[in-house]
Simulated scan of single mutants.
Amino acid sequence: MGTDAHDQVVVVTGASGGVGRAVARRYGSRGARVALLARGEEGLEAAAAEVRARGGKALAVPVDVADFDAVDEAAERVESELGPIDVWVNDAFTSVFAPFTEIGPEEFARVTEVSYLGYVYGTKAALSRMLPRDRGAVVQVGSALAYRGIPLQTAYCGAKHAIQGFNEALRCELLATGSRVRTTMVQLPAVNTPQFDWVLSRLRRRAQPVPPIYQPEVVAGAVVYAADHPERREYWVGGSTVATLIANAVAPGLLDRYLARTGFSSQQTDQVRDGHQPANLWEPADADVDYGAHGDFDDRAVSRSPQVWASQHHGLLLGGATVAAGVIAATMMRRSR
């Protein structure tokens, strides 16, 4: 990137909790100047304190990423107070856990505005400042669901698919103009974040990530690596991500049937959902309560992913991906019979 890690100015959206919070911590440990963008002020202030405790400089900026003018003003404030932006990480999202028929049009629109257009607006604010300097990197935090839709998450899957197409098109434009600004995407597996405590849910039982579950620090390491090496178009985190994406490319119809059989139960625990669970669709859930980076699945989540190393050393990834795809395809064939 051409900028010493201790001198980097980094913007992280969705920084008050989950993956965004873990990414902010990681940059704090590098001594970076970190701007934290999110709606929840309690979560933001707690995240900023963690960045400072790790040796970084923090600027907490309350903002709704669905509002482009607010995002652009936030970017202007960051450059005024911290300096020119080197890295912009788009991570903020919201969603609804429910069958498509139980999601209202205004709810679907809100998810799209935050989880897709929020990335578009963040990228636009970043590029308007990076392009004249001809340097910088934008990291889109994606998901295996950017390639493979699953039941009960139509709004979220639609947004991630849209980000994927947007990012690919933008990457081509940057390459065509010879710009040294880069955009890359990090595709995630299931992660142990607080989203399962605050995403609007209409499920009878409590929502959960589909195992295997990874800790947000695993993802944070991959995001920071991607920002340091944005020449690669995307990175895959977790063996389950590799297996799912390859299997979907090889046998998407088979995967449809497999997910129809397992996708509903695998995303819910045996516990009845709390009817008073907060929902962050319209208002932040962490305005008065700090949820941190981790969800409630620490006892089931893993803190390492050998596949992340393989993704960063791409020549070794293909062999592992092929084996993983074969295993998952064979499993689905058995269960689909």
Rank of each mutant, 00 (worst) to 15 (best):
S115R: 10
R110D: 09
I85H: 07
R110W: 06
V96Y: 04
E113N: 14
G104V: 12
E106Q: 12
A98M: 07
P99Y: 14
D91I: 01
D86G: 07
V111H: 04
A92F: 01
T101N: 15
E107G: 12
V89K: 01
V111Q: 04
F93V: 01
A92V: 00
E107T: 12
E106D: 15
I103H: 12
I103P: 10
F108C: 08
Y119T: 14
W88S: 07
L117Q: 09
T94C: 05
E113W: 11
E102C: 00
F100I: 09
G118V: 01
V87P: 05
E113H: 13
D91R: 01
W88E: 08
S115Y: 00
F100H: 06
L117A: 10
P105H: 02
N90H: 07
D86I: 04
S115C: 09
V96W: 02
S95R: 11
I85A: 05
V114P: 01
I103R: 08
P99S: 11
S95V: 04
V87M: 00
E113K: 15
A109C: 04
V87I: 13
G118W: 00
E106I: 03
E113L: 13
T94I: 10
I85S: 06
V111K: 03
T112P: 13
E113M: 08
S95I: 08
D91V: 05
N90L: 03
V96A: 03
W88K: 06
T101C: 12
T101E: 15
E107F: 10
F97A: 05
T94Y: 02
F100A: 15
F97I: 10
F108T: 06
S115N: 09
V96G: 03
F100K: 00
E106V: 00
Y119Q: 13
A98I: 07
E113C: 12
W88Q: 06
I85C: 11
I103G: 09
I85D: 05
F100D: 07
V96R: 04
V89L: 02
W88F: 13
P99V: 15
L117V: 05
L117I: 10
T112E: 13
D86F: 05
P99L: 15
V96Q: 03
T101F: 15
A109D: 14
G104T: 15
V120Y: 09
L117W: 14
N90A: 08
N90C: 04
Y119A: 11
D86Q: 09
G104R: 15
A98L: 09
N90I: 02
F93N: 11
V120K: 05
S95F: 05
V114G: 02
G118R: 01
S95G: 13
G118C: 03
I103Y: 14
N90D: 12
V87S: 05
D86P: 06
F93P: 05
D91F: 00
D91G: 02
G118A: 03
V111I: 15
A98K: 01
V120P: 12
T112G: 10
F93M: 15
